[in-house]
Structure formats: C-alpha cells, structure tokens
C-alpha cells in the first residue's frame, strides 16, 4: 500500500472509526514502520550497542557484512534493546484532556498514542507498563514483557476514564516507588501547569537514569482558538467561567500559549527531558516517525 494512502488511513479522524485499541495500535505502528527507511534501527531501545562475534545459530541477517569484508570475520550488531529496556507510559486523564474540536478528543488521541507505544515495545520485546492518572493514580500496570502483557496494557488504556484536575506530584511520587529498574518513561499530557513547577516535579525521574519523554498533546483550537465573538469559557477542570473576546483569542492568547509551549520545551530540555509537541489533528504515525527521527539524530 503506498505511503500516502497509509497516511490517509492514519488520520485521527480515521483512527476514531477503528474499533479496538489493539487494531488502532497495530495500524499506527505498521504504518509508522512501513514509512521508515531503516526500520531495524528504530524504536526506543534499538540503539546500536556493540559488535559480538558470530556463533553458529545466530541469525545471518544480523551479520555486519561491511566488517566481514574488511576483516573476513563475521560479527553481529548488538542493540541496546537486547538488554530489555522497560517502557513506562504515564497517561494524563484529567478533565482538560476531554477537550476536542475535531473527531477526537485529546484523551482519545493520547490513548491511541499510548497504545501505539506499548505495541511498539511489544514488537521489540521490551517490557512495558502503564499509569493512568489525574489528581491521583487511576490505574497502574506494572512493566512486564510477559505473554498477555500487551492485552493487559491495551485494556488498561481502553478502560481509562477522565477524572478531574491534574496533579503531577502524587502520581510521580508513587511512580518513583514503582520504578526499580532503569527505563524509559513516557508522559502524555496537555501540561496545563506552570512549566517550572512541572519540570521540577518530573525531573527526579531523570536522576535515576531514566529517560523521560514528554508528549505534549494539544488540540488545534487550544493553539488557535476560533471564537465567533465574545464567549463565556468554562474551565473544564476548575469550572471557572471567564468572558473572552475573539480578538483576545486571536492575539494575546496565542502569544501566551506559544510562550507556555516554548518555556516548557526549554525547561524540559534543560533538565534532560525529551519534549515533543503533538497536535491532536496530526496523523499519529507521521508524528511518531518524526519523533523517532529526532531521537535517533540526537543519540
């Protein structure tokens, strides 16, 4: 199937019509992998680690033929993935994630993203876990590579419900208790919080040798609100009401949300956290491909 056709299928509006997170995750990841030029070297844990001498029984596809040509000795490429990295997905289920101007709410989009990530980890035989949180931990699935783990994770993601406010401190405190081994922690949220306070809360995870990736999911209308005229806006988390004009939304609000994104990106990078902004109207496979391209280039 041509890539453009696949991309068309992977539009968020199309994903919304697919029943079952497993199918969504498979569709996204298959599409994502199909679009890669060097698919074996992609993924969370597929970074090159070392060469190992060939021993009978090894898969000949992993032999580095360039080295063989120079040395007449067969070596295999070894990847970090073969050290069983643990992937922990933290999914924000606060009320603000229920906002959506298109066919998908941010929360649905985030669920698809989480599903795709755990499915990708499953393909690479990494262990994967899940924490769904709002102002408390709503669901926790311990990281594992056991058989049936993928189904457990997808079920957990599917069952996740929106809560009320976001409070990063409590779930992260608990998370620190759960994370015994080094791994990759992926945080999917809309991050309606002061960037300084947010990074300050998440930063300790990094100290333990974890890689932390922040997926900042925002709806297009959050970045560029279209108000027909003066509007009474109700905060989905706090219930606070405020009158806003279309002109303010066109000018000052855009500047403020832009500054917020940039501040969060800057502070995250300063703290050694990966940051990636995702618009909820963007094809998911394309977004993942871009993220992993950036990630590979940085490493």
């Amino acid at each position: 199937m041509p890539a453009e056709v696949q991309n068309r299928f992977l539009d968020p509006a199309v994903l919304a019509g697919i029943s079952g997170l497993d199918l969504v995750a498979k569709t996204v990841v298959d599409g994502f992998i199909a679009g890669l030029h060097r698919s074996p070297d992609f993924g969370f844990s597929q970074e090159f680690a070392e060469y190992r001498a060939y021993t009978p029984g090894d898969d000949l596809r992993h032999v580095d033929w360039n080295v063989f040509a120079r040395t007449e000795k067969a070596y295999l490429k070894r990847y970090r993935g073969e050290t069983n990295t643990a992937l922990m997905v933290l999914l924000d289920a606060s009320a603000s994630m229920g906002f959506g101007s298109g066919p998908l709410r941010k929360f649905d989009y985030s669920k698809y993203l989480a599903s795709a990530l755990v499915y990708l980890a499953h393909l690479q035989r990494d262990s994967a876990g899940l924490i769904v949180f709002h102002d408390d931990v709503a669901n926790f699935i311990r990281p594992s590579a056991r058989q049936g783990q993928l189904l457990r994770l997808l079920h957990g993601i599917d069952r996740a419900e929106l809560g009320r406010r976001t409070d990063f401190r409590r779930p992260f405190f608990e998370l620190q208790q759960f994370l015994k081994t080094r791994g990759i922690t992926v945080l999917i949220s809309d991050f309606f919080e002061q960037p300084g306070k947010l990074v300050e809360t998440i930063e300790p995870l990094r100290f333990r040798g974890n890689e932390v990736v922040l997926f900042h999911v925002l709806d297009p209308r959050e970045l560029d609100p279209k108000l027909g005229g003066p509007a009474l806006l109700i905060d989905m988390e706090t219930g606070e009401a405020i009158e806003a004009s279309a002109e303010y939304a066109r000018t000052e609000y855009r500047e403020r949300i832009g500054a917020h994104v940039e501040e969060l990106r800057g502070k995250a990078q300063a703290a050694g956290l990966d940051y990636f902004l995702l618009r909820a109207d963007r094809p998911l496979d394309g977004a993942l491909r871009e993220y992993f391209t950036i990630r590979q280039g940085r490493i």
Partner: peptide, 20 residues
C-alpha cells in the same frame, strides 16, 4: 452567549475590554 467548555482558561485574563 452560551457558555463554551474550554480545557483551561489559565491563559485568559479577566478584562472588560475583552468582552463588552
């Protein structure tokens, strides 16, 4: 005006000029 739910109003300000 019908109230509109919005994810967060943290970037809006309470200012009269913005409405009436």
């Amino acid at each position: 005006r019908e109230p509109q739910p919005f994810s967060s109003v943290m970037f809006f300000e309470r200012r009269l000029q913005s409405s009436v």
